[in-house]
């Protein structure tokens, strides 16, 4: 393993309903590693196993076989609470359906990962949250409830939130899936800018070729296997 790799997946299998009459294998012996600071895209037909792979990468789900090392630490032996802490500190998630907490404002949503870490909210932390909202161009609507924002604004809030704890890795599952093409372009530019500025590793599932073709690396998943692993 190269030291430069932030995530290493080895021999990952995923079988849903393992102990039922009809187990379905979704991932087959996946071996992948991602370089620190790289911008990666994952493409593939719907149902090919992309989300399953990303969820395993993000420790939201466990593989049936194989191991995931995040920053050199094997996650297989970690308990639920330790994994939660790891997610909180090292991984930012961006989902297709934004998944903001509708009861909270944009600013509060952005602060949430920090509050979950239970560290005291200092002025610096507030400044960071505000800066991030500035970065995604939402300073004006930061006190709006999440439900009172447009799809693009919600997604940008989710991006700001994913950055709050300065994670090493950002995992995005079709982040522009239901946005118009202008907004998609803006979001892409934003992600790329963050990737350049903070050296954050991005792993993005996308159906949008305009995003995929600009990534440093394109991984195509087909029927639960890596069909192509392309670099520029």
């Amino acid at each position: 393993m190269l030291n430069k790799d932030v995530v290493v997946l080895s021999h990952i299998d995923k079988i849903y309903g393992e102990n039922t009459k009809f187990p379905t294998q979704v991932l087959y012996d996946i071996n992948l590693s991602f370089e620190d600071g790289s911008f990666n895209s994952i493409i593939g037909q719907s149902g090919s196993g992309k989300s399953t792979l990303l969820n395993i990468l993000g420790t939201l789900d466990r593989p049936s076989n194989g191991s995931i090392e995040i920053q050199g630490i094997d996650t297989a032996k970690m308990k639920k609470n330790a994994l939660a802490k790891l997610r909180n500190e090292t991984i930012g998630f961006i989902f297709q359906f934004h998944y903001l907490l509708p009861e909270f404002t944009a600013l509060e949503n952005v602060l949430m990962p920090y509050r979950i870490s239970k560290k005291p909210i200092t002025k610096e932390v507030m400044d960071r949250a505000n800066d991030l909202l500035d970065l995604v161009g939402l300073s004006k609507v930061k006190n709006n409830l999440a439900v009172n924002m447009s799809g693009g604004q919600q997604q940008r809030t989710a991006i700001a939130r994913s950055l709050m704890n300065n994670p090493k890795i950002i995992l995005a599952d079709e982040p522009t899936g239901n946005l118009d093409s202008d907004t998609t372009e803006q979001i892409y530019e934003l992600l790329r800018q963050i990737n350049k500025t903070y050296k954050t590793t991005f792993i993005i599932i996308t159906h949008d070729r305009h995003i995929a073709e600009k990534a440093d690396r394109i991984i195509e998943i087909k029927d639960g296997k890596i069909n192509l692993d392309l670099r520029q």
């Binding site: 070729r209 394109i218 392309l230 520029q232």
Partner: peptide
């Protein structure tokens, strides 16, 4: 030319 097109090329 564009490496994304290797997907369809394959």
């Amino acid at each position: 030319t564009n490496y994304y097109n290797l997907v369809v090329t394959k």
